[in-house]
Nucleic acid binder design. Structure first.
Ligand SMILES: NC(=O)c1ccc[n+]([C@@H]2O[C@H](COP(=O)([O-])OP(=O)(O)OC[C@H]3O[C@@H](n4cnc5c(N)ncnc54)[C@H](O)[C@@H]3O)[C@@H](O)[C@H]2O)c1
Ligand SMILES: NC(=O)c1ccc[n+]([C@@H]2O[C@H](COP(=O)([O-])OP(=O)(O)OC[C@H]3O[C@@H](n4cnc5c(N)ncnc54)[C@H](O)[C@@H]3O)[C@@H](O)[C@H]2O)c1
Lengths: 206, 206
DNA sequence: AATATAGTGTTATATAAATAACAATTTGTT
DNA sequence: AACAAATTGTTATTTATATAACACTATATT
């Protein structure tokens, strides 16, 4: 299958979560307009996304939720699962780690890193915190593919380079520092300051 | 001025931050291609954004940083500043509150809310935590316009309705629950699970 | 069995956003 | 003064994304 549009990938993730909820409540089939309503979308948008992934119901009984979830799983998840590290165990890194662990999922946080001696060696929800100097070694040892970057801004660039050097393939960057790191690594930035300033702007102008 | 494209608003926020850094280091002028490089953009993109906000240099000495920052400030910030509340002082709410306070900015967190008696009454970086039952009263009293929503998923919908009822104009929603709340309120969703799943997908497929 | 209805998959169109193209203007150089 | 180089503002084009239009089919209804 061709690589999917970004926005479709995002919605697939949301579809899956919503569909699993439906499954849990005993529902077995769902119409496009029902799924759309759950996520504040239009039915056309849903059908178009499902077209992209080649899912088809054929009966007019709606989509088979179980089958659709399985298909989305096969598209989004890597077969063997993907190992993740959180780098920088301050307020945000800790919050994220505690949120993601315990969720059954093919995305596993398997190590966290810091530079502070008071933090190194501690366990976060059962996950060991390593010295950042051991990054490369641990990335290879534990086959870590993705990093969540939550270090202070002044070390963000250096740390990103270290991640690249260590063989990381994707970064979710929470620092407000733009990373100049080349094309090989997939970087997704989330800038909370920008987010809130955007809300402020549209609140002001609507 | 007409309302700006979303993406331009986002970049303006990023321009401002980068430009302030430049100012702090003594730089007074900047070329479009320099600013672009700082943020991994193209020079054209920068010039186009500046066109939207009607900024013009005319000399070929680059843009006057100070003047440009002032213009962006006048566009993004409300004159009197905008008051913000964080609702749900768990791991994430606490991290966000501690991050945003102490920053000089026209966006001020002026109150935080929770339902847990152990949390209510505490101060978070000097900001009092109120009982969620006092939401409406405090929103009006402190003229709060924006809420950052970090409550557990199961109460997200109800809390969003309460925020609407209380007169909030914009919500930055960190829960993974889609809010069906109508057009009057500007809602910006950030879904961390989707973000990481997206990184995973593109790592897998590139 | 004919007809209507509701839901689907797909093609066509519209909107949003990014990129490219280019004329105009300042500065520097000969 | 004439020219070249660099940088800008704006219009034109391309690409990405969302919306609309519509033909098709399973089911239900008469
Ligand atoms: N907390 C938020 O809500 C928030 C919001 C927006 C942006 N951010 C950004 O996210 C990042 C983290 O924010 P935070 O509030 O958790 O900060 P924090 O200061 O609480 O945490 C940073 C952590 O990184 C560790 N660290 C420092 N240098 C390191 C290195 N070289 N290698 C590994 N670890 C190192 C520190 O010891 C600390 O534990 C910052 O860049 C911040 O700008 C945070
Ligand atoms: N922590 C993360 O990194 C992360 C990541 C993705 C999504 N989220 C979402 O963000 C939200 C907060 O996450 P968290 O990890 O901080 O959770 P948390 O459980 O640590 O915090 C939730 C807080 O909300 C409070 N609360 C409960 N009901 C309330 C109510 N009715 N009114 C006001 N406050 C109430 C609780 O007392 C608690 O302090 C959740 O919806 C979660 O799904 C968090």
């Amino acid at each position: 299958m061709k690589v999917l549009p970004e926005k479709t990938v995002e919605r697939l993730s949301e579809y899956r979560r919503a569909l699993i909820k439906c499954l849990d409540s005993g529902q077995t089939h769902i119409y496009s307009h029902q799924l759309a309503k759950l996520l504040n979308l239009t039915a056309v948008q849903v059908r178009r996304d499902l077209m992209f992934i080649g899912y088809s119901s054929l009966q007019r009984k709606g989509y088979d939720i179980k089958a659709l979830v399985d298909l989305i799983v096969s598209i989004l998840d890597a077969k063997e699962g993907l190992n993740i590290a959180v780098v920088g165990m301050g307020n945000l890194g800790t919050a994220i780690t505690s949120y993601f662990t315990g969720k059954r999922s093919r995305l596993n946080i398997v190590a966290v890193f810091d530079i502070d001696q008071k933090t190194i060696g501690k366990a976060f929800n059962g996950i060991a915190c390593y010295n950042i100097s051991e990054l490369k070694k641990m990335v290879q040892e534990k086959n870590i593919k993705i990093a969540i970057l939550t270090v202070p801004p002044n070390v963000a660039t250096q740390t990103a380079n270290d991640l690249k050097e260590a063989g990381i393939a994707g970064i979710l960057n929470f620092t407000t520092v733009p990373l100049h790191i080349g094309e090989q690594i997939y970087v997704e930035d989330y800038d909370m300051v920008t987010s809130i300033e955007k809300v402020a702007y549209f609140v002001k102008n609507k």
